[in-house]
Computed example of a mutant assay.
Amino acid sequence: MIMYLLMALTAAVVSYAGTWGARVAGNKLRLYRPIRSRDMHSALISKLGGLGIFAGFFVALVVASNSFFVKDIFRHNDGPWGILAGAVVIVAVGVADDILDIRWWIKLLGQAAAAFIVAIWGVRMSVVPFIPEPIFLESEVVQIVLTAGLIVTTMNAVNFIDGLDGLAAGVAIIGGGAFFLTAYWVHRNNPSTDNSDLATLLMAILVGSCIGFLPHNWFPAKIFMGDSGAMLIGLLMASAGVVATGQIGSGLYDRANGIPTIVPILLPFAVLSLPLLDLGMAVVRRTARGQSPWSADRGHLHHKLVDLGYSHRAAVVMLYVWTCILAFGGVAFAVFPWQIVLIVVIAAALIMAVVTAWPYIHRTNRDSAS
């Protein structure tokens, strides 16, 4: 645990300094994008914060490869470097979009390129969790395509939810923290395996990088993470999920209570349930209007909360709470009996649903009374 925390601290310090440097450079060079009608800010702000997050990830990964305990992850394993190569590509694509506003299909091609780099040279999905038995994928082509598809989907999910100051970084910290604790717990409690784990390391570094970035991005934001930061977070989260999924046949998750065969694939979807929900709703909404699924609008979850009457900060905190319920509720299946977890999560979600809708309920009652 100590080494993982040290890697997270390294990522946080470097990310904080790197984001500060990107902020200064962006302001000095006036690398701004015009304010759009759907934007929630009113001042020109640089969107190069993803460079700071990447700096934290890069330095911490290199340090980890030469550090006690966690360096065993890199022994005879090209996975971390394949993920780093994909990260370099997606950050480059994101920066180009943040500065030049490239066409959506060009950005999608860049996402696919980064995802395929990870799937070919980094990590890939070899098992599809299923009940009663997992499905093992023999075809490398199928493994690569499924992995790339998962990575692209996750990158867009995180990118879609990045609409309020501190939102995407906070969701990544909460979701990544839940993922980290579960992956660490599973390895720590299995005496037959090396306790070092790539998924746990990736989540420690990701959480640290986002912690270092968040002070610059908290409302009112001084810099945005932009597409480069949001897509990097999605790539790292999906890659960690692929690593966890590949461990189904190893016996690592046999000690998990409840539904062990689906716990690994449940992790990334649980911690990213809110962004994935927002992504799905956006695709359905835009397709129904005859628009491209990648076209922008002002119909995301965070926009709806602000329209309900929540302040900027209140809307962000509200989505933080929802992320806690869904993320920690999802990973609780690896620790507690699923029946108990299900009851607690449903109860918490119902209470939170009433709290979230309270401004609308209050306004409706007030209008009815008048």
Rank of each mutant, 00 (worst) to 15 (best):
Y184D: 12
A183S: 15
I248R: 00
G249Q: 10
S46L: 11
L61Y: 05
T182E: 15
T200P: 05
G258F: 11
I106W: 12
S15I: 07
K222W: 06
L181G: 02
M237S: 12
S295C: 02
L305N: 11
H302N: 08
G329R: 01
L235W: 03
F328G: 05
V316K: 03
L308M: 15
V171F: 04
N156H: 07
F68I: 14
I131A: 10
V62D: 11
S139V: 03
A288C: 07
L201P: 13
A22M: 15
G163K: 09
S196M: 11
G79A: 15
K71M: 14
H302D: 11
G26Q: 02
R255Y: 08
S192T: 10
T147P: 09
S65V: 08
M225Q: 07
D278K: 06
G208Y: 01
G79L: 10
P129C: 04
S368T: 09
P220E: 04
E138Q: 10
I233R: 01
M3P: 03
G122N: 12
G175K: 03
I361W: 04
F69S: 05
S67E: 12
V344H: 05
W322C: 03
L252D: 04
Q111M: 09
S273I: 06
L305V: 10
M281A: 07
P337K: 07
S295H: 01
R289I: 04
S292T: 09
L137Q: 03
A244F: 03
I265Q: 00
V13K: 01
N195A: 09
F160S: 12
F68T: 14
G226R: 00
M318I: 08
R298M: 06
G26M: 02
S368D: 08
I102C: 05
V186C: 04
T200G: 06
S273F: 11
G251V: 11
V355I: 15
T287W: 01
I346T: 14
V186L: 11
A112M: 14
L319W: 03
G234L: 06
V354H: 03
L350T: 10
G79C: 09
T193E: 13
H216G: 11
E133N: 00
R38T: 02
W20P: 07
H362C: 12
W322N: 04
D194C: 11
Q247W: 06
L266S: 14
A288Y: 08
A238I: 07
W218F: 15
L279W: 05
M7Q: 08
F269P: 13
I211E: 04
P337C: 06
W358N: 08
S209P: 14
F219N: 13
A157P: 00
S126P: 03
G175W: 09
V118Y: 00
D254P: 02
L201W: 01
I35W: 02
R30Y: 00
V316H: 04
N195V: 09
K222T: 09
V283L: 13
P215G: 01
V59H: 00
I120V: 14
D78L: 14
M3R: 04
A357M: 12
V70H: 03
Q111L: 09
G122F: 12
A347S: 13
N217D: 14
P337S: 10
C210Y: 00
Y184G: 06
T200E: 11
G226D: 07
Y16N: 08
G246I: 11
R36P: 01
L84V: 13
L350C: 13
G166R: 03
K222N: 12
P80E: 00
